[in-house]
């Protein structure tokens, strides 16, 4: 039906197109890399080369020594880990209730959880900010943790419920017969078996809080309390002079985040589409 040569040409075109798309996707990362290597006196340049003339790692040293970059990372880490632990523990039990029990309100509850995804993020920031201000928690870790802790809860509950649903009920029944109660079966059987889903929920909570900018910007005004996105925004603000430092620090935070995301993406996607389809 098809001539022998046609598929080769077609394959070549396809690979060419995809390669171009890949280049577009990686382009900003390459540019960040290239700019971060520029020597201090040539930050501003119209050079497009990947490795600029006189490349050096000086900008990295400057970021670590002259800015609060490490402090910002630490702040982010403290806030993020705390919120993720809270978020996942709340979600793990709630999702179990939704997965295994039919009780008054179970259907409505699940629907409302999806409904919260519709609320514009900007809508919640204002009252949260005012509450936190009123409680004198601006510029504190606690204020940030409060603001972040339930933001990923609906999604985490959906993802965990989906996973619990795949665990056969007979395992819990066996545990009941073996001599524990329902909660014991959850703790001893279901939770250990759900480690993959729990870690994915944790990673999701983590990346959400780790990359968050808008809430942090209104709650944290003291640059010693900044999370890294705020710090980075500040560096990029004074565009021309600190572009090198911005690029260096941007690359430093991006690499681990990329790694974590690529590792967990398959799971996140299945969770996302699962939540969508069921609704």
């Amino acid at each position: 039906m098809v001539e022998r040569r046609a598929p080769n040409l077609r394959g070549l075109v396809i690979h060419g197109l995809i390669l171009f798309a890949c280049l577009v996707c990686v382009f900003p990362l390459l540019r960040i890399f290239s700019v971060s290597l520029r020597p201090g006196d040539r930050i501003i340049s119209t050079d497009l080369a990947l490795i600029p003339a006189g490349a050096s790692f000086a900008a990295y040293g400057k970021v670590l020594k002259q800015t609060n970059f490490l402090l910002w990372l630490w702040n982010s880490l403290v806030i993020t880990v705390t919120t993720s632990i809270i978020g996942v523990s709340l979600a793990s039990t709630a999702a179990y209730a939704f997965s295994r029990f039919r009780f008054p309100g179970s259907k409505l509850g699940l629907a409302l959880l999806l409904g919260t995804q519709m609320i514009p993020a900007g809508m919640l920031i204002l009252p949260l900010f005012l509450m936190i201000m009123r409680l004198h928690l601006t510029n504190t870790y606690l204020g940030m943790v409060i603001a972040y802790s339930v933001s990923s809860l609906p999604f985490s509950i959906w993802i965990l419920k989906g996973y619990y649903d795949t665990i056969p009920r007979s395992l819990e029944e066996a545990a009941l017969v073996d001599g524990t109660d329902h909660f014991g079966a959850f703790l001893r059987i279901v939770l250990p078996l759900s480690m993959p889903a729990l870690s994915i929920a944790f990673l999701f909570n983590f990346t959400q809080a780790w990359n968050e900018y808008l809430v942090a910007r209104v709650i944290l005004t003291n640059s010693l309390m900044y999370t890294w996105p705020l710090g980075l925004f500040g560096l990029q603000g004074q565009y021309l002079t600190q572009w090198g430092m911005f690029s260096a620090s941007a690359l430093l935070v991006t690499i681990p985040v990329l790694g974590v995301f690529l590792y967990s993406s398959k799971w996140l996607i299945s969770g996302l589409t699962l939540g969508g389809v069921k609704g």
């Binding site: 056969p168 007979s170 395992l171 029944e173 066996a174 545990a175 009941l176 017969v177 073996d178 001599g179 524990t180 109660d181 059987i189 250990p192 078996l193």
Partner: peptide, 20 residues
């Protein structure tokens, strides 16, 4: 009485062995 207090043992259709 809950299952654990009935002094019974059960073998399930899918065996229900704890995978972990």
């Amino acid at each position: 009485r809950s299952p654990r207090d009935r002094e019974i043992a059960m073998v399930f259709q899918d065996y229900a062995l704890y995978p972990h």
